[in-house]
Simulated scan of single mutants.
Amino acid sequence: MSAVAEVRWTPAPVPLRAVQGSLALDLGAEPSPAPRPMTPETSALRGADTVVVSPAVRSELQQWALTFGQACLEVVLGDRPVTQLVRWTTPSIHRELAYRARVVAQATLRQAGGHGPRRPAVRPQVRQVRACFVGAGVAEVALTVQHGARHRAIAARLEVISGRWQCTALEFG
């Protein structure tokens, strides 16, 4: 039988709100990025987690991931500047989001950042988030996006880098 460590973290005091840019992206009180392993209370794991986390920790990260995923959608669609996600993405993911925003802007004859012709009435929305904790300070999330009658997926890997959660991998499906 393999040993499994439970991960629990307590929110660190946040002196300033994490609001950036003209659309006031506020990812709220970011989940504390430094989970501490502790003795498991039960041997049962939730889903595919390799570390046990409390329901409160899971809920907190899923809410943060939902807001982050929605912001990524808005960047790609040109409704939000990509610079608003610079704190929560690695440089390679930031470049990829900027590239995707340019491609979509060219395809729809819009200017990235929310300028240009009127947007359609139906906007994509993140509807569901599932998180899998694969290590202390590492989580993989799957987001379900609804755009009208269609559903799509976004997968992301979040890791603690420089003391905060950052997206290190992002796939649109």
Score class of each variant (00 low, 15 high):
Thr67Gln: 11
Thr83Lys: 05
Thr83Trp: 03
Thr168Phe: 02
Arg119Thr: 15
Arg150Gln: 14
Ala155Asn: 13
Gly173Met: 10
Ala24His: 15
Ala153Gln: 14
Arg164Asn: 14
Arg100Pro: 07
Arg58Cys: 01
Thr50Pro: 04
Thr67Ser: 15
Ala139Val: 14
Leu170Gln: 01
Pro40Met: 01
Arg8Asn: 05
Ser59Gly: 14
Leu97His: 01
Arg130Ser: 15
Leu16Tyr: 10
Trp88Glu: 10
Ala136Ile: 09
Cys72Ser: 14
Ala24Tyr: 15
Gly116Trp: 04
Val126Trp: 02
Leu73Lys: 07
Leu73Pro: 09
Glu171Cys: 04
Arg95Pro: 01
Met38Pro: 04
Ile161Asp: 11
Ala3Trp: 06
Arg127His: 05
Arg36Tyr: 02
Gly69Asp: 09
Ala105Val: 06
Ala107Tyr: 11
Asp26Ser: 03
Thr108Val: 04
Arg46Trp: 08
Leu97Phe: 01
Val104Ile: 09
Trp9Cys: 09
Arg123Asn: 07
Val53Arg: 01
Arg127Asn: 07
Ala139Gly: 03
Leu97Arg: 00
Ala56Lys: 13
Arg118Trp: 03
Phe172Ser: 02
Arg127Phe: 03
Leu61His: 09
Gln62Ala: 13
Cys72Pro: 01
Pro124Asn: 12
Val7Glu: 12
Leu25Ala: 00
Arg8Ser: 05
Trp9Glu: 10
Ala112Gly: 02
Thr10Asp: 08
Gln146Lys: 06
Leu61Lys: 03
Gly114Met: 10
Gln111Tyr: 01
Gln111Arg: 07
Arg150Asn: 11
Ala169Ser: 13
Thr144Cys: 10
Val145Phe: 08
Val103Tyr: 00
Trp64Val: 05
Leu97Cys: 01
Ala101Glu: 06
Gln106Ser: 13
Pro120Phe: 05
Arg87Glu: 12
Val129Thr: 13
Gln146Arg: 13
Trp9Asn: 13
Arg157Ile: 13
Gln20Asp: 04
Pro15Ile: 12
His115Pro: 11
Glu159Leu: 00
Leu23Trp: 04
Gly47Phe: 10
Val7Asp: 12
Gly135Ser: 13
Pro11Glu: 09
Gly21Thr: 03
Pro31Trp: 11
Val122Cys: 11
Pro37Glu: 06
Leu77Cys: 08
Glu41Thr: 12
Ile93Ser: 00
Leu109Trp: 09
Thr50Trp: 03
Glu30Gln: 07
Pro120Ala: 14
Leu23Asn: 08
Ser22Met: 11
Glu74Lys: 15
Ala24Ser: 15
Val86Asp: 01
Trp165Ser: 05
Gln146Gly: 09
Ser43Pro: 07
Leu143Ala: 15
Trp165Gln: 06
Val103Ser: 00
Ala136Pro: 06
Pro35His: 11
Leu27Arg: 04
Thr10Phe: 11
Arg100Cys: 11
Pro35Phe: 14
Ala98Glu: 05
Val76Cys: 06
Ala5Asp: 09
Pro124Trp: 05
Pro117Asn: 03
Pro117His: 04
Pro33Tyr: 07
His151Met: 12
Arg58Ala: 02
Gly47Asp: 10
Pro35Met: 11
Gln62Ile: 04
Val4Trp: 00
Val103Arg: 08
Arg87Leu: 13
Arg95His: 06
Ala18Ile: 05
Thr90Asn: 00
Val4His: 02
Ala121Trp: 05
Gln70Asp: 09
Ala12Glu: 13
Thr90Gln: 00
Pro13Tyr: 08
Arg130Lys: 14
Trp165Thr: 04
Pro35Ser: 11
Gln62Tyr: 03
Ser59Asp: 12
Pro40Trp: 02
Ala12Pro: 01
Leu77Ile: 01
Arg119Met: 14
Arg152Ala: 14
Arg157Cys: 15
Pro31Glu: 12
Leu73Thr: 09
